[in-house]
Amino acid sequence: MNHTIKHISATEAHAVRHPVLRAGKPIESCIFDGDDLNTTFHLGAFIENKLVAVCSFFKCKHPLLPEEFQYQLRGMAVLNEYQNLGLGQLILNHGEVLLRTQNIQIIWCNAREKAIGFYKKMDYTIIGDAFNIEHIGLHYVMYKTL
């Protein structure tokens, strides 16, 4: 599979987040606080110049994690017809490499229950108890030491 991964804008990320993570909800539901901060970055995976996968990285500390330098992964999404091709792993690995070069110690996310297996394969660990995000479902905080 011939793909490229590059930095994209928040608006480009919304175009993939929306149908995957917030289908049937208003587009505004997939716009996150901090999307446009200069410490936030968004990555996109392209196949034949089509944006098919996205993930966003926010400078944000989680209270359960003591490390000083942390980033939160948010809005990871792969268009349905491109799922199970390894794109999620490729784009997340790319982001982790970029964070390591910035001496970030921890990456964490609020993982949907159905995504736990994916994150475990990527060496993420659950911390704390499950929690519900209204209208979205059960989530777990997962983290990885970089």
Rank of each mutant, 00 (worst) to 15 (best):
G75Q: 06
A53T: 10
A13Q: 12
L73P: 03
L87K: 07
H14F: 06
Q105T: 08
E48G: 02
H139S: 08
G44Y: 02
A23D: 11
N93W: 00
G75K: 13
N49E: 15
A53K: 01
C109Y: 04
D123E: 12
K50M: 09
T39D: 03
K6N: 13
H7S: 11
L73Q: 05
K121E: 11
D35F: 08
V54P: 07
M1Y: 12
K50P: 00
V141A: 03
D129S: 09
D123S: 11
V52I: 12
C60A: 09
D36Y: 06
K120W: 04
I116W: 03
A45L: 15
R112F: 08
P26W: 00
Q72F: 01
N80L: 03
I107H: 00
N110M: 06
G137M: 13
N84Q: 12
E113K: 12
F57R: 12
L79Q: 12
F118I: 13
R74H: 09
N93Q: 11
E113L: 09
E68L: 13
L43V: 09
V78F: 08
G34L: 04
K50A: 13
V97L: 10
E68D: 11
G86P: 02
T4A: 14
V141L: 02
Q102L: 13
M1E: 14
D36C: 02
Q83V: 04
N110Q: 11
H42R: 06
L37W: 00
H42D: 05
A130S: 15
D129E: 15
M76T: 07
I127P: 06
L90I: 08
E134W: 05
F32G: 01
Y124P: 09
N38Y: 12
W108Q: 02
H18L: 15
L65M: 07
V97M: 11
G128F: 10
G117L: 09
Y71L: 07
P66H: 14
S9K: 12
Y82R: 06
A130I: 01
L64K: 10
K6F: 09
T145R: 15
F131H: 10
G117Y: 03
C109S: 09
T39V: 00
T145C: 10
D33Q: 05
I47V: 11
H62C: 13
E113S: 13
I8M: 01
G137K: 08
K6A: 06
L51M: 03
G137P: 04
M1P: 04
N84P: 01
G75V: 12
G95C: 05
S29D: 13
C55Y: 00
C60Y: 08
L138Q: 09
L64C: 05
